[in-house]
Simulated scan of single mutants.
Amino acid sequence: MPPSYILTTGATGFIGAHVISNLLAQNIRVRGTYRSQSKVDRITTHLRSIHGDEKVERLLDFVYTGDLEEGGFDEALKGVDGVVHCASPLNFTLKPEQIINPAIAGTKSLLSSITSTGSVKKLVVLSSFAAVVDEFSKGLGPDVEYTAQDWNPITYEQGMSELRYSYLASKTLSEREVWKWSEGNGKGVGVVSLCPPLVFGPIAHPVEKISELNSSNAELWFLTTGFSPLPLSPVPAWVSIHDLTTALVNAVLDDSITNKRYTIASPEPFSSQLAADTFRELFDWAKDRVTEGEPGVYPAVSKLEGEITRKELLGGREYIKWKETVEEAVKQFKAVEDKEKASA
């Protein structure tokens, strides 16, 4: 039997909010974790406008999680039989230890609570391409392809040495904790992890300021500032938030998918020049705001395998296209910017 009551951690964030909305659309009971009541109030109001008061009242609830110590998820897991773990700190104004340690501690706390409560039969973990890429030896050259069998070899010490390595370490080391647990105390729980690259698309959680965009979308929107020369993106791959959400939800609901690690990525590579070209093509206002660069000149980049996920978690349908994703997302972001300026 597939899970009937699913806990989503990081529920008020970019990806977690989409997961909750998707589950509600399928009439599945869902619980979210939160640390900010104001964010819960905003997202609940938003979800009511989409799914209706009755459905949200009947199927959605939230549980507060404070400091993520051992047992910190015990209350949140009561009655739950499936988990989608999306929560992870990502704030590059922090120090390395403020990124790495909470990510590992939060994952270990969740795993400990799953073990002690005993009701969870399926755990889906949102990891990252950061846990796959090997900057130290393979790099991102055009002859390189990454798959779910690849692991970032970064160590805790390397992650602590430089801020730019801290996110790589946080995602790698916290995912490794999951797989180590699955071979020990987690036996009997079906585990799946997904490792997406940049995630673009519209937001399902209300934001009042452009500065509240998630990191991937913020990177995309940054190109509208006229920064020149166009920055070189550190990640040459992307996926639509809709495709990622579908994959996460299908992974937790499908009993036949267990103990598997996936990479997920559109076959269309990402570059800042591609984004700039698309902005200027789709939006008249972008012609005055987005650096032209060298139109049509895109770097040769590594590939991230996504075909297995397409077949097994997306029902075999094609990935959502780049232009479709940009048009939907950027229209929404521009509306947020316009409203913010109007209220200033």
Rank of each mutant, 00 (worst) to 15 (best):
L173Q: 10
E183K: 15
V178T: 12
K180M: 10
S166F: 04
G188C: 07
P153E: 12
C195Y: 00
Q158C: 09
N185K: 14
W181T: 14
S182Y: 00
E177F: 01
S170P: 03
K187M: 05
G159P: 00
R176P: 00
K187Y: 01
S161T: 11
T155H: 06
M160C: 11
T172M: 06
Q158H: 05
V191A: 14
V178C: 15
A169H: 05
L173A: 12
N152I: 04
G190F: 00
Y165R: 15
V191W: 02
Y165E: 12
L194I: 11
W181I: 12
L173S: 12
R176C: 03
L173R: 08
E175W: 02
S174T: 14
G190Y: 00
T172C: 06
P197A: 11
R164S: 14
G190A: 11
A169V: 07
A169M: 08
S170L: 07
P153Y: 02
K187I: 08
V192M: 07
V192W: 04
L173H: 11
G190C: 01
K171M: 07
Y167R: 06
C195F: 00
R164G: 09
I154A: 08
E183H: 13
A169F: 04
C195L: 08
E157F: 07
Y165L: 15
S174Q: 06
L163H: 03
K187S: 11
T172Y: 02
C195Q: 06
P153F: 04
E183Q: 15
Y167E: 06
Y165V: 09
P197N: 02
A169W: 02
T172I: 04
T155M: 08
K187T: 13
L168A: 12
P153D: 13
L194F: 03
K171I: 04
P197K: 00
W181D: 14
G184W: 01
T155V: 10
S182H: 09
L163R: 11
M160N: 10
W179M: 13
I154R: 01
Y165M: 15
S161Y: 11
M160D: 13
N185R: 07
W151M: 02
E157S: 14
G159L: 03
Q158N: 07
V192K: 03
A169G: 11
L173Y: 11
Y156W: 09
N152T: 08
S182G: 09
N152R: 02
L194V: 06
L168P: 02
E183D: 12
K171N: 08
L168N: 10
E177A: 15
S166W: 03
G190I: 00
Y167F: 14
M160Q: 15
V191F: 07
L163N: 09
M160F: 08
V191K: 05
T172V: 04
G190K: 01
L163W: 01
Y165W: 15
E162Y: 12
S174A: 15
R164H: 13
G190T: 01
T155D: 12
I154T: 08
S182K: 10
V191N: 09
P196R: 03
I154Y: 02
Y167K: 06
S166V: 09
P153S: 11
K180E: 15
E183T: 14
